[in-house]
């Protein structure tokens, strides 16, 4: 996995609560068997006027001018500011894949849905929870200043604004460690194979039916 240490980039405000993963990447694009190529269909229904199809070339499609990521000043956005309960609904990891493929490295919101939050960390994407009033302030600043950039510093757990303000955020120690070092957590878990085998041996005695071969 690509490590995440410090990132500075253009921020864009997506002023909508309860953004669900169907909105982030609609179902017709989930038919792909790959992890890449979802960026052009990120927020497809918010972003384009027409209905998108899988494998479609998107450059000529009519854009919704009012959608934030379509506006000139937000081209090249890599930090997304969002509202409460971002990423709710379906567990599709295609949502962080689409954000990542589009070029988003970090999403900042007052709250996230659990599964989406977890999926981000598996893909080198950093979801950051800030207080509601802090997110409000960032929304105001980004809207008032064209070219507004935010710096996300994972090691020090801080979001820094151009004016030098800093907002601290929480992140689980294990997730932080994996993200900073770009660690594959399957490899890490496999280092604990002996513990897993010991658990299985113990459990097999308590609940042998869980280990029966499923005969058809």
């Amino acid at each position: 996995m690509r490590p995440f240490t410090t990132h500075t980039g253009i921020a864009a405000p997506l002023d909508l609560a309860n953004v669900d993963t169907d909105m982030i990447i609609p179902k017709q694009f989930l038919k792909s068997i790959k992890r890449t190529g979802f960026g052009k269909n990120l927020f497809d229904e918010l972003r384009y006027e027409d209905e998108g199809q899988p494998d479609q070339e998107c450059t000529g499609r009519p854009l919704r001018k009012d959608f934030v990521l379509n506006q000139d000043r937000y081209q090249g956005t890599s930090v997304l500011l969002a509202r409460n309960n971002f990423g709710c609904g379906s567990s599709r990891e295609h949502a962080p894949w689409a954000l990542d493929d589009f070029g988003i490295r970090s999403v900042i919101a007052p709250s996230f849905a659990d599964i989406f939050y977890n999926n981000c960390f598996k893909n080198g994407l950093l979801p950051i929870v800030l207080k509601e009033e802090e997110v409000d302030q960032l929304f105001k600043e980004v809207e008032a200043n064209e070219g507004y950039e935010l710096t996300v510093d994972l090691a020090n757990q801080k979001v820094k604004t151009p004016s030098g303000m800093e907002f601290e955020f929480e992140v689980d120690a294990f997730r932080k460690h994996c993200l900073l070092n770009g660690l594959d957590d399957i490899g890490l878990t496999l280092q604990e194979s002996d513990s897993i085998k010991a658990y299985e041996e113990k459990r097999m005695k308590q609940a042998p039916w869980l280990f029966e071969a499923r005969s058809l």
């Binding site: 567990s91 599709r92 599964i115 598996k122």
Partner: peptide, 9 residues
């Protein structure tokens, strides 16, 4: 529910 990375895990 889990994501695809966790399915693999």
């Amino acid at each position: 529910g889990i994501g695809t990375s966790e399915v693999e895990h």
